[in-house]
Amino acid sequence: MLDSFILPVCRVSAPLILAALGGMWCERSGVIQIGLEGFMLVGSFFGAVYALNTSNPYIGLLMAGVAGMVLSSLYGMVVLRYRANQIVSGTAINLFAMGIPPFFSKIWFDSTGSTPPIPTAAQFQIAPLWITLALVALSAWAYHSSRFGLRLRFAGEHPDALQSAGVSISWKRWQGILISGFLAGLAGGTLSTYLSSSFIRNMSAGRGFIALAAVILGKWKPIPTVLACLLFGVTEIAQIRLQGVVLWGAEPVPVQWIQILPYLITIIVLAGAVGRSESPKALGNS
């Protein structure tokens, strides 16, 4: 059970959880964050590069987070400093991110968008799961009971109240954006250094958007968001397990039916099973 179900679910959920926590922090501060996919992509690339060069997966993972953060600071500059539309600039960040790995991999490895395999000694065994767990605990605590968390939430809920208390709204939003960049970068890092052994072009494969769906499903709250990610993880594993299995009749279930499971569940859950999902009041106003 542990080896055949629980661990696989945790493994496929871990990058979703990290990215979703990042998305939650950013959106709680009042900034729409659809750039998670892009942060993940550069994170997984630089994670692989540093794990390769230093033969130390921890440095790789850390640099993955830093890479995501650097890219997110660009997003922060565009939307906070220059007040650009957040949806449009988020999309632009995602497109921009797609070009970064091919550019550097051409220079460093003469390859068009992938890194050489990371040797087994420089790969994680299980540590990223513990790191994820620690970050979940930290996030939940900060969200509910730290001054930092409360102030950040106010930036997305009642920015005026925050301002009259003498706290800079834009600084809180900067924090939200940088946290999301770091966490989504870490999420990407787990893809290339833990869940596989090299960076492959576009390897984030839509996970950033699934993480965003999890944030909405989890009503922008840490524990429900994590549960939503685990739900996606369960459907992913169920999807693997149900392929080619005969449930009724003589023919196995067509693979296409199984693969719509996560999307189907998202629609059903969002359409009412968990009730109204209310976004932070000041989300998107800047």
Binding site: P8, S197, M203, E236
Partner: peptide
């Protein structure tokens, strides 16, 4: 087309 570029998922399937 993403199916050709998704080693983490392939690894999960293989482990399974």
């Amino acid at each position: 087309g993403e199916a050709w570029n998704n080693p983490p998922k392939a690894k999960e399937q293989a482990l399974d």
